[in-house]
């Protein structure tokens, strides 16, 4: 088998495995969907009127919820990667000469795909709640692009965290900050409305430019400057996650 097709074959075998895992444990998908939808109900029907954001609140909040869905969908990945490491599954593959990238790539790709399915559900519900995007077709593509980049970045970080955690439970806890970060961004209220400390934090953390970019694209008013910041964050975080994952993979055998 050639140098290129062997890792591809291994990755697709591992992908099939991960796909079966998701189908047999649909809660992993459901968890990613329910929480964002719950937050959306809360924001749009209960609290939304309290923030006047200048546009329809469903339009304002949906981009943040989309990013939140990514963060809520990664728990199972951290646990799965960790148990692969701690139960000796990864060692078994290493002794079989399976390309190391295959296992990790498969986890990242299946997490991104699972996340996209969850996001499709969340966006569907958003439409029912009055979400009316005004994006053109290319802007839609751009929106999908930024979502995929964000999902890639978060997935690589999650895989790395899963590889380096001592236990599956520990791996799960590493995901908690990711679930809280969107609340401290411009997801539900503009950063300049927040208190002093929170405002600085919100302005400089990666989720704010990412959400602003997505919001701009969906509302048909994209800003190139924010988009570049967002893409740079995604690329940087993906690279950091990838390097971290590779290092933990090599170190822990």
């Amino acid at each position: 088998m050639s140098v290129i097709s062997a890792p591809l074959a291994d990755s697709s075998t591992m992908m099939r495995r991960n796909f079966r895992h998701t189908m047999r444990n649909p809660l992993t998908l459901l968890n990613a969907i329910i929480m964002p939808i719950f937050v959306m109900f809360l924001m749009v029907y209960v609290l939304g009127d309290a923030f006047s954001v200048g546009v329809d609140y469903a339009d304002y909040a949906t981009p943040g919820l989309i990013i939140m869905t990514i963060c809520y969908g990664i728990g199972p990945t951290a646990t799965a990667v960790n148990s692969d490491m701690t139960t000796g599954f990864i060692n078994r593959l290493r002794v079989m000469d399976v390309s190391r990238a295959a296992v990790l790539n498969a986890h990242v790709i299946s997490t991104v795909l699972r996340t996209l399915v969850a996001i499709a559900f969340v966006v569907g519900v958003a439409f029912l709640m009055g979400f009316r995007p005004s994006a053109s077709f290319p802007q839609w593509l751009g929106a999908i692009g930024i979502v995929v980049l964000t999902a890639l970045a978060i997935s690589w970080l999650t895989v790395a965290a899963g590889l380096s955690a001592k236990s599956p439970e520990g791996a799960g806890i590493l995901g908690v900050p990711l679930m809280l970060l969107p609340f401290l961004s411009s997801a539900f209220a503009p950063a300049d409305r927040m208190g002093p400390g929170a405002r600085q934090f919100a302005e400089y953390q990666p989720f704010t430019p990412i959400i602003e970019t997505l919001r701009g694209l969906l509302n048909g008013t994209p800003s190139t400057g924010t988009a570049i910041t967002a893409i740079a964050w995604c690329a940087g975080l993906s690279l950091a996650g990838y390097l971290w994952a590779r290092a933990s993979f090599t170190k822990r055998a």
């Binding site: 079966r20 444990n25 139960t87 000796g88 599954f89 060692n91 078994r92 002794v95 000469d97």
Partner: peptide
């Protein structure tokens, strides 16, 4: 070496969801 050996680790590393 890997082509010639098989290893069963200390903890059963079967995939529970398969």
């Amino acid at each position: 070496v890997r082509a010639a050996i098989g290893v069963t680790g200390q903890f059963a590393s079967v995939d529970n969801l398969l």
